[in-house]
Amino acid sequence: MASEVRQASADDLTPGGERRRDFLYVATAAFAGAGVVPVAWSLVNQMNPSADVLALASVDLDLSAVQEGQAIKASWRGKPIFARHLTAAEIADAKKVDVATLRDPQKLEDRTKPGSEQWLITLGVCTHLGCVPLGAAEGESRGDFGGYFCPCHGSHYDTAARIRKGPAPKNLEVPPYTFKSPTSVTIG
């Protein structure tokens, strides 16, 4: 303990006249503070999707049994997916709308894959507050525009699943997907 004596007092002043100890304390506190960042991040990052959840991020869908005019539901990342086999009339309906008049202007072609225009694949999640719209199952209301209808707050979607009436701000979202064959897709 006898060695714990102050070495030299002249060192205590920097050329700027500041006491050198200030710098040491600031450096210590700053260094310790920098260490808090990765710790805090790991405490936050644990809430992100875990590896097993991420591994389920893609799902294969077989469309071969879906007749014209029908739709099927599937689950992707825990959310419903609607895959609708559009009829020629529905495609014509969707194409004749003036895109400029839409709340969320998108053409049917923007929402389907070239050559597979009859397959309309969207999330079954209303863009208003996240309810599942009606219209995918047989006999459900399809709303004023022949697509989907969300009963929670009355949003109507047309045959291209675009918002036409009601509070929802956007069209039903199209998930990323690719056709593996004319009747099977991988979503995600």
Binding site: E4, V5, R6, R21, L24, Y25, A27, T28, G35
Partner: peptide, 21 residues
Amino acid sequence: LIIMTGLGYLSYRKVWADIKK
């Protein structure tokens, strides 16, 4: 942690310099 503790130890020596001089 070793660097942090080392800096902390230097600070500690400075703080206690008046008492232990």
